[in-house]
Simulated assay, not measured.
Amino acid sequence: MRRLFLFMIFCAAGFLSHAQEFSSEVWHDGYLITTEDDTVRGLIKYDMEANIVQLIQGNVVKTFSSHKIFYFEIYDKLVDNYRQFYSIPYNVNYNYEIPIIFEVLYEGPLSLLSREAIVQESVSNSSAYWGGSFIQDKVHYTFYFLHKDGKIDIYLGKKSDLMNIMSKHSSEVKSFIKKNRLKTDELRDLIRITAFYNAI
Rank of each mutant, 00 (worst) to 15 (best):
F72H: 00
Q84Y: 15
F85T: 03
D47Y: 08
C11Y: 09
S127E: 12
A128N: 09
S175D: 10
M1G: 10
M163Q: 02
H169G: 14
V104M: 11
I193N: 05
L105Q: 04
L110D: 09
S171H: 12
A13C: 09
E21W: 06
L55E: 06
E73S: 10
I152H: 01
R83Y: 08
Q20P: 01
V92K: 13
D29L: 12
D76W: 01
I74N: 01
Q136S: 14
F70E: 15
L182E: 01
F7K: 14
I74M: 01
A13H: 04
E121H: 14
H18N: 01
V53H: 03
H147R: 14
L6G: 13
M1E: 07
S175A: 15
S170Y: 13
S127F: 12
K179F: 06
Q20C: 01
G131I: 08
D80C: 09
S23E: 13
N81M: 13
K158V: 02
Y82L: 05
S160T: 11
Y31C: 02
H169A: 15
T184K: 01
Q120G: 00
I154K: 12
V40G: 00
E73T: 02
L16F: 14
F145W: 05
N95R: 08
F85P: 03
Q54H: 06
Y96M: 10
S24W: 10
P109V: 01
F102M: 02
I52Q: 09
P89N: 11
R181T: 04
S65Y: 12
F7A: 15
S171P: 03
K77H: 12
S126C: 11
K148D: 14
